[in-house]
Design a protein around this nucleic acid. Structure first.
Lengths: 146, 146
DNA sequence: CTTGCAACTTGGAATCATTCCAACTCATTA
DNA sequence: TAATGAGTTGGAATGATTCCAAGTTGCAAG
């Protein structure tokens, strides 16, 4: 079910970890693999359960640690919605999120550069942005239940 | 320190509550007053502590209840940032938030209608938006420490 | 290839915001 | 005046996340 990392992905992982002086561990490889295998913005718990299939005995605390590490070295993004559990997303291209209220699913929405540019322009001059989060909430009209 | 509600604000409160069939209570008036008195996006706890000055004996659970009621009848908005405590904001005009990492303070950013329009356009046709949340995170360069 | 050690992992306890609950209050209606 | 139902209250329960101390391991240097 869960594939191994392909060379390219393994390289990004190793590179990102190396760059911030951290070690490569089996746990980290598996957690990263799980994240790439199914890009449905899983919660920590979901990642944990999926990873357990490959590595029984993995601990929840470690999953928290791994994900935090990845966020720290820019490999994945956190996705927060209201007060729900944090979700994780390995899509690094700038994008927004759409949360379907009826299914709870989160969809990536590509974010044109112009809009990002315009957005930063509405800030007062002395405000320096580090991250922008844009999230929509609503419903998808059936038909193409993407 | 905490003023009473002026006529206009009291009216919006009463109207909003009436419209959704809820009662006017001293607790609700005070919580709403606190919210309007200092528009710094307080957490529940902050609202609670400020309200205690006027109504000792008020309970935290009630503050949670009141705020939830207000959100429900559209009187206030919730503001979430990462996993921090939820904050509340009586500004109903469409606006984004900027969170200053160094101070933790949240600033309202006016949101031009064009940008909102453009944003909804980037969604696939069958996605129906109910709410959009835009939040910046960064720092303000000293000088005008707004 | 060994060694040393900082970095990592682990299970369980602790934290903290939020929700839940059952008893109580109070205004209103019958 | 009694019944009704929404609202309030304090404390217990929940659930995600963090903390911690002990054990393990990756890997750089010898």
């Amino acid at each position: 079910m869960i594939q191994n990392l392909n060379k390219h992905d393994r390289d990004s992982l190793h590179e990102a970890l190396a760059k911030s002086g951290q070690k490569i561990t089996p746990q980290r490889e598996i957690v990263y693999t799980v994240l790439l295998a199914q890009r449905d913005h899983p919660t920590v718990d979901e990642v944990y359960n999926r990873a357990l299939e490959t590595m029984p005995g993995l601990s929840l605390a470690t999953v928290y640690n791994c994900l935090e590490t990845f966020v720290g070295c820019g490999l994945v993004r956190q996705v927060n919605h209201e007060r729900e559990s944090t979700r994780y997303c390995p899509n690094l291209a700038p994008h927004a999120h759409f949360r379907d209220e009826s299914t709870g699913r989160v969809h990536d929405i590509e974010l044109p550069k112009e809009i990002l540019d315009q957005l930063t322009k509405i800030l007062p001059a002395n405000f320096e942005t580090e991250t922008i989060e844009i999230s929509f909430q609503g419903r998808t009209k059936s038909s193409t239940q993407n």
